[in-house]
């Protein structure tokens, strides 16, 4: 019951999706769409588990007055306020995503600047990490360094001002060698995912049950 039923469920859902792919007619084609909707619904409930986990761990931190417990209060206040303004937006405007909704105020003036600045901050860390890591120690490392410099210069006006070579070379690198390696990696990763999926459907891979 505890292990067999989940294995059967996994096998049947995976199997039906594969059958629906090869037989996109009634009833299988319709079944695929239905299963995908069900998947979205069930996944939606997992969000509750995640949020609950976040609340519990930070509530514990506050209760024990661990280091940084004040920041946990900020986290919980942010979470609660966002959910409440979302509910208010839904009640007043029919959608939290209505432009007049207070939820969109939180999105525009809190989430967007925080997210944008957090990612912008990474520019400094990537640059400083690369300064330490990018050494032209051998031919291969030099290739990495040179292609990075050409792409960076080729994508900004100063590159074109120095020479027309940089924008053209940047475009060629992105369209040919970069694409080739990326394509090779993607094909390999996709084939790996296919074999892993097959192992899961056949019940060989069961780590998700632990």
């Amino acid at each position: 019951m505890k292990r067999t039923v989940p294995l059967v469920i996994t096998f049947l859902t995976g199997f039906f999706l594969i059958v629906a792919f090869f037989i996109p007619h009634e009833p299988f084609g319709e079944l695929e769409q239905r299963l995908l909707v069900w998947f979205a619904i069930v996944s939606g409930f997992t969000m509750l588990l995640g949020v609950d986990n976040l609340i519990r761990s930070h509530a514990k931190r506050i209760a024990r007055t661990d280091t940084g417990w004040g920041h946990s209060i900020a986290l919980l206040v942010g979470l609660v306020v966002t959910v409440v303004v979302g509910a208010i937006g839904f009640a007043r405007f029919g959608s939290p995503f209505h432009m007049q909704s207070p939820f969109m105020f939180v999105y525009t003036y809190v989430i967007v600047p925080l997210q944008g600045t957090m990612f912008a901050l990474l520019a400094f860390f990537i640059a400083s990490a690369s300064y330490r890591a990018f050494r032209a120690r051998n031919t291969i490392a030099t290739l990495l360094l040179v292609s990075a410099i050409i792409v960076m210069l080729g994508r900004v006006p100063i590159g074109a001002a120095i020479s027309d070579f940089f924008p053209a070379a940047q475009e060629w690198i992105m369209d040919v060698p970069q694409l080739a390696a990326k394509r090779g990696i993607q094909i390999g990763a996709a084939l790996g995912a296919v074999s892993m999926s097959l192992r899961i459907i056949l019940g060989i891979e069961r780590s998700y049950l632990s």
């Binding site: 989940p6 049947l12 999926s197």
Partner: peptide
């Protein structure tokens, strides 16, 4: 585990197709 198995099954099915 049942709903997890369901989502994993869908993910695996889509993982192939």
């Amino acid at each position: 585990r049942w709903p997890i198995a369901f989502t994993v099954g869908i993910g695996a099915g889509l993982g192939i197709t």
